[in-house]
Nucleic acid binder design. Structure first.
Length: 271
DNA sequence: TTCCAGGCGTATC
DNA sequence: GATACGCATGGA
């Protein structure tokens, strides 16, 4: 990774980064493709327009971005401190992961806000990505940005009706209540051993193993968290009936993203 | 129209 | 602890 300031923009050089594979792969729901090589979205409530200006070279323009904002927000959000080339080398000791990494080598794990990730993945359950984006769009539109749990303190299942989130509204209300009361402290959860962190998150109604692991992986950067959804169930049955290979240790969740993307786009091939 | 979506709560065994 | 079923909503 390196970067330079160019007028009001930051020019970022980062191999192992592809916008579609990272911003439109179901880990974050607030990025919109506004041109063939451009996305617009947010880290919490900081806006960014990012354009890939050299696909082969891995060069990106972060439009109208101060150097301090790049260093304080986007460097972390885009996980630029992680060496994905090295990770993919390690994963590629496994034959299936080697194919998955080669198929979509531009995947990165975004470091999202913990509350945004938890609430987004509560909304995601038994739902499809366009509608998840619609619900979150109505939420952020209503509040003028992604609302904190404090801002949501007075919402009820009924008052959240405008989201049209169905049965998930009561789950959001429960999560808000447990966080605002101090019963659930996401900052503390992030540091717990994985099983304890999962258990703590699952005290919220509507949070099961899958949502808990997504909140940990995408919202607390716990790369050891391994969300198992319907696609990963198929992947595990097909490729890893005896468990994950040792080469992913500590980065099970990162490996999961490559496998998720790979199997979702090769649903019926027997690889 | 019918099926299904990055699951989970509940009832039942 | 395992398994079946309903759930709000809307895209395909």
């Amino acid at each position: 990774m390196d970067y330079k300031v160019s007028g009001r923009d930051i020019i970022l050089h980062q191999p192992d980064f592809q916008l579609d594979e990272t911003l439109d792969c179901g880990q974050a729901f607030r990025w919109t493709k506004t041109a063939p090589d451009t996305y617009e979205g947010y880290c919490l409530n900081t806006f960014l327009r990012i354009t890939c200006i050299d696909e082969r070279g891995g060069v990106f323009r972060l439009e109208n971005t101060q150097e301090s904002v790049f260093n304080e927000i986007w460097y972390d959000y885009l996980d630029l401190s992680e060496d994905y080339s090295e990770l993919k080398r390690r994963f590629s000791e496994d034959a299936t992961l080697a194919k998955a990494c080669a198929y979509a080598g531009g995947i990165r794990i975004l470091r999202q806000d913990s509350w945004e990730a938890l609430s987004s993945f509560i909304i995601s359950q038994n739902n499809n990505i366009p509608r998840i984006k619609g619900i979150i769009g109505r939420l952020t539109g209503h509040y003028g940005g992604y609302p904190s749990s404090a801002q949501l303190a007075f919402e009820t299942e009924e008052s959240l009706g405008f989201l049209r989130s169905g049965f998930r509204a009561k789950y959001l209300v429960d999560a808000v209540s447990k966080i605002n009361s101090g019963e659930l402290d996401l900052g503390a959860v992030a540091k717990l051993p994985l099983a304890d962190a999962e258990k703590a998150l699952m005290t919220v109604k509507g949070v099961g193993p899958k949502v808990a692991m997504c909140a940990l992986l995408f919202g607390m950067h716990r790369t050891d968290a391994f969300p198992v959804d319907v696609w990963m169930k198929r992947a595990l049955e097909r490729w890893y009936p005896n468990g994950l290979p040792d080469c992913v240790k500590g980065y099970e969740g990162t490996a999961q993203q490559y496998l998720f993307h790979y199997i979702r786009n090769h649903p019926q091939e027997d690889m």
